[in-house]
Amino acid sequence: MNHTPTRRPGIAAVMSFETRKLLAQKRTPITLVVAAVIPIIIAIVMNGQARPPKDTLFGRFIHDSGWSMPLLLLGFAGQWLLPLLTSIVAGDIFASEDQHGSWKTILTRSTSRTQLFVGKTFVALGFALVAYVILATSTIVASVVLIGHQPLVGLNGQVIASHDAARLVIESWASVAAPLLGFTCLAIALSVLTRNVAVGIAAPVALGLVMQLVGALGGVELIRPLLLTTPLEAWHGLFADPAFSGPLVVGLVVSAVWCIVSITIAFVVFRRRDYLG
């Protein structure tokens, strides 16, 4: 066990180096600013609409309660925004080294491949969480400031008091963290496998859309719970009366399995690949 202390600085060094690289790229701060600003613009535009968007859950109540806007946007964000938000970094973090031909330089340093892989993975997961927290906070704060904190109508027609609605909105946004990290792992795997930045960034979004399409079909009930997009809707149960959490638990397990499988494949391929030849 004596070797443990010497390994930790290795991963930390990789993480610090990767974070500095990330911040030096223009798209990283741009993504974070977009995550903060876009919800405010959408909330202003939606609030100005005379006809509320009834096609999406909670859309019909956007003028009645500030708590409905974050839920409408959560339903909307799950369609492609969340996969895109994470894959911008996760889909790039390995493949960009291929693009720049920099593997030889990095792999001849004192850090091991495992440390490099773990460090890059942690940075990608960390970026996903930071971007997501900014998006969620901006959405919720902008909605409440613009519209107010009136009681909300739930998914059994019941009236939910404002303080309960606040808790449920935060819980709902928190519940999509698991599938979001699932998409991060998927993007990392695609980034390692394809060695192509464009595929690493676009493929998770495309796969997300395909999974949603499959999930919306009738007669695929056995596959539906296994899709990574299904947990993005698991929060619906929180707003029912009585509330149910079965889909949230299943969603957590499904997201974890997607993540573990993706990362394992990525790690095995990364360890065995001949970068130096």
Partner: peptide
Amino acid sequence: VLATVTMTGCSGGPTSSTT
């Protein structure tokens, strides 16, 4: 992706259990 869509399209039918 196409294979997944086709497979899911074929495997699902009116008999598959629905929630």
